[in-house]
Design a protein around this nucleic acid. Structure first.
Lengths: 205, 205
DNA sequence: ATCAAGATTGGACTCAGTGCAAGTTTTGCT
DNA sequence: AGCAAAACTTGCACTGAGTCCAATCTTGAT
């Protein structure tokens, strides 16, 4: 009669299962509508009608309309962490970041393409994407801070922000029809430029 | 009877003068309220009441509530252009950008401090600042493109975005009470890091 | 003085997001 | 099994930003 950790936990409680189910229902209903009509043209009311939940429930799960685009499943977060954990400890931070980003884009190519198409269709989404954009950047920041505890905050923040800038810039210049390989190519070029420094575009004088 | 450019144009027509006056009235009324109560706590209705104009007029001048914070007077735009025009043509782009930014911050220190304080007080402002944030970035981009017409788009876009990232990062780590010199110091450090490249934090292996 | 262009206004409307009180379901405990 | 607390859902009333439009007033030129 000690701690007695739950012996059978196939999907961890009816409650949580239902919650995840509702989350998915809302999410996929919304995304179908978004893909069909564009982000701006779809209202909350349409979403909740399609998902058979109340307006209130929608806002229980997603704080904003944008969140329904960017929010990710727990399984996805696990996948991020695997990617992060896979980097060898002795690898220099910049290289590790670059490797992580490339793998991230490769792994979640479908998500990237979908979000990118939506962004193009909607100024509002495009604007808000930087902000609560994926929790991924938060995770990445925490990981980097853990990995490099002695780095000074400004330098670390700038490095991470630059990674994000490289990512965003590459993405902005990428046409989804060109395939994910093209996106990776643009990313690599961006990383090369930022890695080498902006003071010396061609060579060192 | 040719083009007949306006011979006397001291302040260019009553109409335009009035327009500018209204713009200023709304703007300063709004900013007084913002400074006093914080951005989020002030509603459009309060602003228009304080400025003695109608709600409709407000939206004639400013597309959003945020715009009233970021919008700048024509005179300010002139000042930007002077700063940009002052860079010698043979100066390397990165150095020119750095010099411009430092001068910009020094020149508009008051504006920077004010906006920064507001941003701190309001998540909403903080979020939207990247987007329609000052028209300054647009001007800077156009200037850079004119200056370096042969540069490839991705590289140029990344350079400019990085400048903006340096700026934002320095700003985020700056406490206004520390004085504008501190802000410039942070900017210089950011530019040094980005200029030297992120691949080699300490030295080249 | 007149008239068209431009500026201002009020008011009705949409839509995202908040707050709350009342109902329903799940869970843990006995 | 039974029951009470915790968690989830729902409806409803509300705020506040932003759009649209038709009516009215102001300015500039003839």
């Amino acid at each position: 009669m000690f701690v007695r950790v739950p012996p059978e936990r196939p999907t961890a409680g009816l409650r949580e299962r239902k919650k995840l189910a509702t989350w998915q229902t809302i999410r996929s209903a919304a995304n179908e509508l978004f893909d069909r009509d564009g982000f701006d043209a779809v209202g909350i009311d349409q979403i909740v009608a399609a998902a058979n939940v109340s307006r209130s429930t929608f806002f229980n799960y997603f704080p904003t309309k944008e969140a329904v685009v960017f929010d990710v499943a727990p399984a996805t977060v696990e996948r991020w962490r695997e990617i992060l954990a896979a980097r060898p400890a002795e690898e220099p931070l910049w290289e590790a970041l670059q490797a992580v980003l490339l793998e991230y884009v490769g792994t979640f190519a479908d998500y990237m393409v979908r979000v990118h198409r939506l962004k193009i269709s909607s100024p509002a989404l495009m604007a808000s994407s930087r902000d609560h954009s994926d929790r991924f950047w938060g995770e990445l920041g925490a990981w980097a801070a853990r990995r490099e505890p002695t780095a000074e905050p400004l330098s670390m923040a700038l490095t991470l922000a630059t990674v994000q800038t490289v990512f965003n810039t590459a993405f902005a210049h990428w046409e989804p029809d060109a395939g994910i390989e093209r996106c990776l190519e643009l990313l690599r070029r961006g990383f090369a430029q930022a890695g080498a420094g902006f003071a010396a575009p061609g060579r060192t004088p």
